[in-house]
């Protein structure tokens, strides 16, 4: 993180650097978040234009057999790993950073008692989640 942003006080920025914080965007410019934003899903509800996930919904139906998860490498593994406790609705709602998916995985294992699959399956599932439910791509 070489690009320091103006945060009001240098002390805060230094503190943030010292704590080893990682930024999703290399060059933070608040206006980029506002430029070229797609219109909201409902032109008669202005709040829809302000949402992180402007398309509202999961971008199509997905595979009904897999709780509406979109088809793709890892879809089945994800379904079987994740629906033991909750439905796919909580997954389909997400648009988060890659780092957050790693954190969520750890939280699911350590705090919620999710059984970890083998390393290979874990990689496949995390790649699937980061591909389909991402704020980064």
């Amino acid at each position: 993180m070489k690009h320091l942003f103006a945060m009001g006080t240098g002390a805060v920025a230094v503190l943030a650097l010292g704590a080893g914080l990682a930024l999703a965007a290399p060059e933070p410019d608040p206006m980029t978040a506002l430029a070229g934003r797609p219109a909201g899903a409902d032109p008669l509800d202005p709040m829809t234009a302000l949402m992180a996930r402007p398309e509202e919904g999961t971008g199509g139906e997905g595979n009904v057999e897999l709780g509406g998860l979109p088809d793709g490498p890892g879809a089945e593994d994800t379904f079987y790993q994740c629906v033991a406790c909750h439905s796919t609705e909580i997954i389909k709602q997400q648009r988060v950073t890659d780092h957050r998916w790693d954190e969520l995985w750890t939280w699911m294992v350590e705090k919620q008692g999710m059984a970890e699959p083998d390393e290979e399956t874990k990689k496949v599932i995390l790649t699937y989640l980061k591909t389909n439910f991402s704020s980064e791509r």
Partner: peptide, 23 residues
């Protein structure tokens, strides 16, 4: 208790840029 710790129902102690991971 559950959801008191970690980042559940917690905010960063100082303002952070969007997308920042906070210890």
């Amino acid at each position: 208790g559950a959801k008191m710790t970690g980042d559940s129902y917690r905010l960063p102690a100082y303002p952070v840029a969007p997308g920042t991971e906070v210890p």
